[in-house]
Nucleic acid binder design. Sequence first.
DNA 1: CGCTAAAAGCAAATAATTTGCGTTAATGGA
DNA 2: TCCATTAACGCAAATTATTTGCTTTTAGCG
Lengths: 198, 198
Amino acid sequence: MPAKENLRPGGRSARVQASVHNAVRALLKTMDRADVTIPLIAAEAGVTPSTIYRRWGELQELLADVAVERLRPDMLPIDTGSARGDLEVWTEQYCEEMSSGIGRDMMRDVLAAQDNANACKCDAFTREQIALIAERAHARGEAFPDIDAVMDGVVAPIIYRILFGDQPSIERVRNLVTNVLASAPTRPRQPASAPISG
Amino acid sequence: MPAKENLRPGGRSARVQASVHNAVRALLKTMDRADVTIPLIAAEAGVTPSTIYRRWGELQELLADVAVERLRPDMLPIDTGSARGDLEVWTEQYCEEMSSGIGRDMMRDVLAAQDNANACKCDAFTREQIALIAERAHARGEAFPDIDAVMDGVVAPIIYRILFGDQPSIERVRNLVTNVLASAPTRPRQPASAPISG
DNA sequence: CGCTAAAAGCAAATAATTTGCGTTAATGGA
DNA sequence: TCCATTAACGCAAATTATTTGCTTTTAGCG
């Protein structure tokens, strides 16, 4: 299994990888993913097909590789001033992004690959974002549930519905957030130091 | 898109479909799924490859087709005498089945297909099983949450974790069941008739 | 029983994938 | 800095998969 980040991270190898990734993104913009083939990508990237075959093995792995990069969060969760607001805004944005055609396709690409390392990465990205919101909540002295509780209570239901054919409504999503926040301890678990207000 | 159950349900066509499905199952038993190809399946099934190409289009669709049949529940949820017991036993069995290598592969096959009709079917199967448990609970006069609540609170977290790299522990699964049952109304919503005990 | 057309078979044409081997260039040590 | 080593690339030939045009079989129906 030729993983992508093991050997020779510099120079030509890196250039080829970048070129191939760009080619995939460019092609996916202009055509249906069912019509994207490795020889086509190779031509667009200016490399020989066997390079791609040897490095990624299958189209599916390459697509998963590109998809996971696009799923990497590119900004911090918006700070609304409260834990509830932060989580609500983040969740609605996350849901919208994942429900869109592109989001769905990317998720499918990631899950379809034999190697599930990319799926794990996606999970880690999401957890990081939630952890940031949780940290802010704790810094403010607000209660906030465990990351796992948010994953189970908010993320999982959204993703499940998207994958298995349903588009989660905004009301449903808001409900998930409300419920998971209600399950949080009413006091912060362990403020870093005594509250300023004391 | 040549769907599978539109036309000519009888005779040769049905025989070919059965033969191809059997061939896929047989091959998946003896070899890695990465090595299963359409020409191989065709040879095993005694049909010509172009038949498979025209009918299913891609290997992925055929695999999804076979997988969804294997995911169809083949028995009623076990009746333990109580809603909690029924849901616990069913959930643990479901989780075990889906976490196994075969379960994971089948889920991946279903989700990887372009056509998400099979994914919808899987969701429907699960809902039916839960509905049966819910009906029994209501018949006994027990409280039971909405199907959607069970999907969000139990099924989705399990599937999410399996898909995104984690194996849900039995304690976690039991917790999910406990929590969703705690959220059920304490009285049955509308008993079919007055309880016998009255 | 015969008509019609959907589905299957066959084979040729096309396209994708694999593989052996020579070349390029990234990395590490003298 | 230069050289040795070898990962990664390119090329082309061989193999394998996929598509397609046409023919044959047969399910569905009057």
